[in-house]
Amino acid sequence: MTGVLTGRARPSSRSTSPGRTPRRRLRRALRRHGKEYLLFAALVGPNLALILVFSYWPVIYNLYLSFTSWDMISPTPTWVGLDEYRQLFTSADFGHVLLNTLKFVVLIVVGAIVGGLATSLVLNQRLRGRGLVRTISFAPHIISGAAIAALWLFMLDPSFGLLRALLDPLGISSPQWTTSSHYSLYALVMVYAWKGIGFCAIIYVAGMQNLPADLFEAATLDGANGWQRFRHVTFPLLSPVTYFLVVTSIIGAFQAYDVTAVMTGGGPGQSSTTLSWFIYQQAFQASNAGLAAAAAMVMLVILLTITILIARYGERRVTYQ
């Protein structure tokens, strides 16, 4: 393979016209490594084609759409240059959406990871029925978002919800969780974080079971108490798991859509509208594909930046065993 790529074959003395030598080189290389090339193409080709068609092509086409104005029904988009981006960045609504997204992502990631870690500490104990509890706590991650949203909508309903039954005896009236802009975003955060806790917990439990027991024994012999063992041994050793969960939770929170669709529809007003919901709204409610595509490009840039930052600075803090 290397030979082909570096062109070790010497030019033949018979090569008088330009172009003949490379062709001969190629022929020789193909003869020598043809089977390898074929195998390489057969193995890589289909995957490469799928990635190009389903991952890169939509991104490239989306980039093109972001420079157009299009209602998705008219035959062709109209080229408008940077107009859609200008509209995005001069609109107060979009600033509000970005701020919502920031709050939403930070709260969900922190909530799910802290909650997941706390749950995993319990689930890692040798308790009776541990398997069942693990299954139950993982369930929210695999149940459909729409079903979870419908359930929470019922629980949070201030007129006949479960929460009302709990608060009424205390003389507290249940807040208008989904119909007041003071609470709607936090109602969504609560549900998404709850949904993520089980997943984080199970991944943490798996991580904890691979930690070397001798370190804990040594720490115990040194007189470290439970909190100190967690703070100085468990948590640092779990940092690769935390790193993985932070990255995947951030991406998941940015893409959150299903629960929002059922519970608040981004409202009241735009109080619970995050970037992903804004993109959906613009594309499919307002038939504004150009603006939606521009917002999607903004989301792509934000996610890429976050991922690069985490990879560059976050990974330094990760301790591998």
């Binding site: 119909t179 007041s180 009241p268 409610q285 038939s287």
Partner: peptide, 18 residues
Amino acid sequence: VQNASPIIYGGLQKIYGD
């Protein structure tokens, strides 16, 4: 106007909800 209804009820949510 394609998005008229969501625009109007988005406003109503602010009046009736907030």
